[in-house]
Each structure stands twice: as structure tokens, then as C-alpha cells.
Design a protein around this nucleic acid. Structure first.
Lengths: 242, 242
DNA sequence: GTCTTAACAATTGTCAGACATTTAAATGTA
DNA sequence: TACATTTAAATGTCTGACAATTGTTAAGAC
């Protein structure tokens, strides 16, 4: 009646993970030492260590050396969760051949969901952050990567304006994971000008508490971005054909 | 000028992770054997193994035993990403004392984002799935947990109706991570009836391609769910005070 | 008595070597 | 050719040891 045919370290990690998820092990509580865990689970210390490394990789525990050291249940922080979500989303997009249009559609649909809240709750600080990024996007000599990075920062500020940390967390993946895809686009001066105009009107709409206008601008931005992606694709196809 | 003050296994895992993320290691490509990695990095095999377990915990690699075995770059699957996202979201909600209202607000805002696409693309199959869950929700003797599970399944079908896998992935976390919070609510017959009515009208709206109506129903559902949460909280406060 | 310093103990981090287990491929045989 | 056997390569696991870190405690200086 063995658990399964998996590694011992996988099984043990699963047991400990359950204990954390169900609250049997509370935040900041100390796990037994590696030697104790080895004894109670009837395995050697390296096996226990491999199990603990698995949990550490998921930010479920942290370890400290020394006398009062050991493995402690980690309070999962938003920053850790953000980071994980972004790398996971990035990998999903790159490894599963998600086309640009699908990713764009999802991104802007999610951002649109923030607008009703953002128009209610945006503070002067949010508006200032957005306008600062707009200014950065208009600067001469800005690289395409720099433009994309500023674009992400602009939208991040917009999402934060909704004042809901859960929304911010969920959208971090969607927005930032798009950046590698966006970086494939070459932005002409005219492209940038069009996008900056949308950003300006969008910021104005938030400032004026005009949800409908903001939604319309996001829709325009989505359509324009998808069109840019299609143009790049068409150019690439043409070049490979000619 | 050492790399940093972190574990060797952490550093090595980071190097390998970068190689995978940047595409230097392609999907299904085989990593060097543990012995080779140990030699090239100048560390022992256990240290290499700990590094590999970290990557395995993030579903970045899979390992196979035997002659042609080894560690291979894993194609990140949606199911794996779902699972990780749900546990992460659940932990975030439980460990960071996110209140019910904030979580609810985020969940329904995100679902609302799917509606324009869902009204365009819903198939008879999606509608059938939704109606099946509505039927399940009306059954006598259904536990509160069962009701919540069916509620999640209903909304999952609705999200899938948008026909965008990226959206489905992003929302899996938001919707399913809410379930533990939802399970804290005790649903009276009248509560259930109200929710089922909303579900029916929502499904009707999708069938009739009426986005505005669907959005209105989601808003009602959000408000009603938040109200239920507030009632539970009020009762609990009253009991502890009395 | 108090402060400083040194020894100590507990714990994680790392290493070396060995053996067990699994699996694909090579080899041998009918 | 088809099937059984051997072999080699790789991961999985164990044992035992030592290094590095850090809190505690005891000793000693003033």
C-alpha cells in the first residue's frame, strides 16, 4: 500500500505542502530539523533536503542556518507571487505557441475589467504615474524595448488605480508576460504617436471618471496593437516568401 | 567577488532556469547528466540534485531514470500552470488576510471581462455545461461545499466560453482560489434560489448574445455574493459579542 | 556586578563514495 | 528474424563525514 510510484522526496514534499496549505503548519512556524524529518519519515537526510528544496522553490518555506535555524513556513508575499506568475505566464506563452492576437485579446480584456473600479478610485498619484510614462514614451531616441517597458509601466499604474491588490496580482502575469511578444514589434514614430494618443485619452477618461470613454480607448488600443502584430507577421511572411 | 551569498544549489538552479527561459535550452532537450553538471559547476552531485529538484518543483524539467534517462526541459502544460496558480492564489488569500469583499470584487470584475467574448463565441456545449450545473445547484440535499463546487464549475464553463485559453488560465486562479472563502458561507434555500436565478438569466443572456444583460447579471451576482459575505460576518461578530 | 570574549552546541550546507533501481540498447542464441 | 540475456548509463537513495553559521553559555577581565 505504498503511496505511489513517485520519488520519496516528491511524496514527502507533498505531505509537507498539504500541512502548510491546510494550516497545520502556521506561518513562521518552524519545521522539524532535517535530521528529525529524516527519522520520522524513515529516509536519509539528502532525501529530506531534496523535499525541502522543492518547497523552497515554491516560496513555501525559507531556511536559516545556525543554532536557532531551520526551515520555517514562509509568508507568501505578493512580490514572490508576482515573480512566479510572470515567469510561468511567459513560459506558457512562449512554449505553447500562443499567437499574438490571443494574448493581446486576453490582456486588454482583463485591463478593461479594471476600468470601472479605476475610474472610481484613481488617485492623483496614479494619474501622475501614467502621465510620467506617457512623457517617457514620447522621448527621442527611445529604443523599442524601452518603449515597451514604459508601456507595461503605464498599464501597471492603470491596473493599480483599481485599488484591488488581487486584481493587480492577477493582471501582473497577463500584462508583463506579454512584454517579450511586444518586443518583437518594431514601432515607427507614427505607431508610437498613435499609442501615446490613446494613452493620453485613456488617462483623461480616468481623470474625468468616464468609464465608457476609457473602455472605448482600451478597445481602440487593443485593435491597434493587434493590427501592428498582424503587420509584423505579414512583413515577415513576405520576406521569407520573396 | 563570489556570485552571491546564496546556496550553491540556488545559484545553479538560477543559471539553468535562465537558460530555459531564454531558450538556450529548448523544450524536450536533455540537460547534461547529474555527474556532468557536477563536474562543470565544480560541485558535488547532491548539490546538483537539489538544484534540479528546485526546477522540477516549478515544472521546468522532468526526469526519467534508466539508460536514455536524464533531466529534460518540460513543456509547461496548462494543467500544471493552473494547479500552481490555484495553490498560489489560495495561499495569497489565506496568508495575507484578503477580505472576502476584495476577493469577490476581483473575481467578478475578471469574469465580467470575459462576457463580450463569451457572447460572441459561446457554443451549445458551453450553454449545456452551464445549464447542467444550474440543475445540479437546485438539487435537494446538496451540501454547501457541493453548491460552491458547482458554482465554480458553472463559472468555469462561462469563462471557457470566451474561447481564449490565456483568459481561462488567468481566471482559473481567481475563481477557484475563492472557493475556500466561499465555503465559509452557509447558503439558505432562499440564497440558493436567488443565485440560481442569476445563473439562469446569465445563461439566457449568453444564449441571446446580449452582453449588456450578461454584465448586469454578473454585477447583481457580485453584489449579492458580497452581501451574503457581510451577513455571515455580521452574524459571527454578533455571536462573539453576545 | 558587568562587560567582553571564548568555547559550545545545534543546524543547515557541502562533499565523497557507494549501492540500488530502472531502462534502453547491444549482444547472443534458437 | 525473433526472442532472451547481458550490459551500460542514468537517476534514486543511503551512509558518514566535515564546513560554515549562529544563538547560547560559561569563563575571565575590569
Amino acid at each position: 500500500m505504498g503511496k505511489s510510484d513517485q520519488d520519496l522526496s516528491t511524496q514527502i514534499a507533498q505531505v509537507l505542502r498539504e500541512a502548510i496549505l491546510t494550516g497545520q503548519l502556521m506561518v513562521d512556524e518552524r519545521l522539524p530539523s532535517e535530521a528529525e524529518l529524516a527519522e520520522t519519515h524513515g529516509v536519509s537526510r539528502p532525501t529530506i533536503r531534496e523535499a525541502l528544496k522543492r518547497l523552497a522553490a515554491q516560496s513555501l518555506i525559507r531556511t536559516k542556518r545556525g543554532a536557532a535555524g531551520g526551515a520555517f513556513v514562509n509568508q507568501l508575499r505578493y512580490e514572490d507571487a508576482y515573480r512566479d506568475q510572470i515567469t510561468t505566464s511567459t513560459l506558457l506563452l512562449s512554449m505553447n505557441a500562443i499567437d499574438f492576437e490571443t494574448a493581446c485579446e486576453a490582456r486588454f480584456a482583463l485591463e478593461r475589467a479594471c476600468l470601472p473600479l479605476a475610474t472610481q478610485r484613481r488617485t492623483p498619484d496614479h494619474l501622475a504615474r501614467m502621465r510620467a510614462e506617457i512623457a517617457a514614451q514620447g522621448q527621442e531616441g527611445l529604443s523599442d524595448e524601452g518603449f515597451c517597458a514604459s508601456d507595461v509601466a503605464f498599464h501597471r499604474a492603470m491596473v493599480d488605480a483599481a485599488g484591488n491588490p488581487v486584481l493587480s496580482y492577477q493582471l501582473a502575469g497577463a500584462v508583463e508576460a506579454m512584454q517579450p511578444l511586444m518586443n518583437m514589434i518594431t514601432f515607427t514614430a507614427r505607431n508610437r504617436s498613435e499609442i501615446i494618443t490613446r494613452h493620453q485619452y485613456l488617462t483623461d477618461a480616468l481623470e474625468g471618471n468616464d468609464t465608457a470613454r476609457a473602455e472605448a480607448e482600451v478597445d481602440l488600443l487593443r485593435d491597434y496593437t493587434i493590427k501592428l502584430g498582424q503587420d509584423v507577421k505579414a512583413q515577415r511572411d513576405e520576406r521569407s516568401a520573396g
